[in-house]
């Protein structure tokens, strides 16, 4: 988080003051907490579940702020976003009971977001948005009782809903606090016994970021 803030401040200082914020391209850097919903995995031998510890996420987005230039469309932004989420496996749940696990699940995603903004008289800008794209879900060396469980990845369709508030710090710089519901469409993996299973991936994310207009 410290590096994201530093990077944002540096970009703000480097940006020429003559380009006042009247719409146009922008860059966002953000990071924060990511919580994965408990996962139900479905295989030919039955179902088994994963639960993950709270983790972290970081991302960057390059976008275009429509501001008031397109009144027919409205006030808002479109952006392409790169994101990385990681959570450690807490435990795996089988018919015979829970067992502590290790390893992590990561999701590297490319999303295309459309965001609607409301700029009232308050200093805060509220926004909501939708995004769609693709994500690579990786089960990185998942283990239970030192036995391998899964080590595989899959690329699937992903979508997200985002909402939050932004505060204009300078004419070109915004502080952004947001929530994201991010879901991937049924990734499929192969377990350590060679059996395929269908999984799930839904996360809730709290992000803090900086957005700088060019």
């Amino acid at each position: 988080m410290k590096y994201i803030l530093l990077a944002g401040c540096l970009l703000a200082l480097l940006a020429p003051a003559a380009f006042a914020a009247e719409g146009g391209f922008y860059l966002t850097l953000h990071g924060g907490a990511a919580m994965v919903d408990d996962v139900e995995n479905d295989s030919d031998d039955g179902t088994f579940n994963f639960s993950f510890d709270p983790g972290w996420q970081a991302g960057a987005a390059l976008g275009y702020d429509l501001r008031d230039a397109y009144p027919n469309i409205g006030s808002g932004r479109v952006e392409m976003e790169f994101n990385w989420r990681q959570n450690e496996l807490d435990e795996a749940d089988f018919k015979s009971g829970d067992i502590a696990g290790s390893g992590s699940i990561t999701a590297a995603s490319v999303m295309f977001n459309t965001i609607g903004e409301y700029r009232g008289n308050l200093p805060w800008i509220t926004y909501v948005g939708l995004g769609a794209g693709a994500t690579r879900i990786t089960l990185d060396d998942l283990r239970v009782a030192d036995s391998s469980l899964a080590d595989d990845d899959d690329i699937v369709f992903a979508w997200q809903v985002l909402a939050g508030v932004a505060r204009q710090l300078t004419p070109r710089l915004y502080l952004d606090l947001g929530y994201r519901y991010f879901a991937a469409l049924d990734p499929e993996f192969t377990d350590a016994n060679g059996e395929d299973f269908e999984s799930e991936y839904v996360t809730h994310n709290l992000t803090l970021g900086l957005r700088m207009d060019f």
């Binding site: 919903d37 295989s43 039955g46 088994f48 749940d93 239970v144 009782a145 809730h204």
Partner: peptide, 22 residues
């Protein structure tokens, strides 16, 4: 809100035996 949503849609009880642990 995150905690409430995180609690939604809990998985069903598992039906597979743990055939990973030695």
């Amino acid at each position: 809100l995150m905690l409430l949503l995180a609690g939604c849609g809990d998985p069903d009880d598992p039906t597979r035996e743990n055939d990973f642990v030695l």
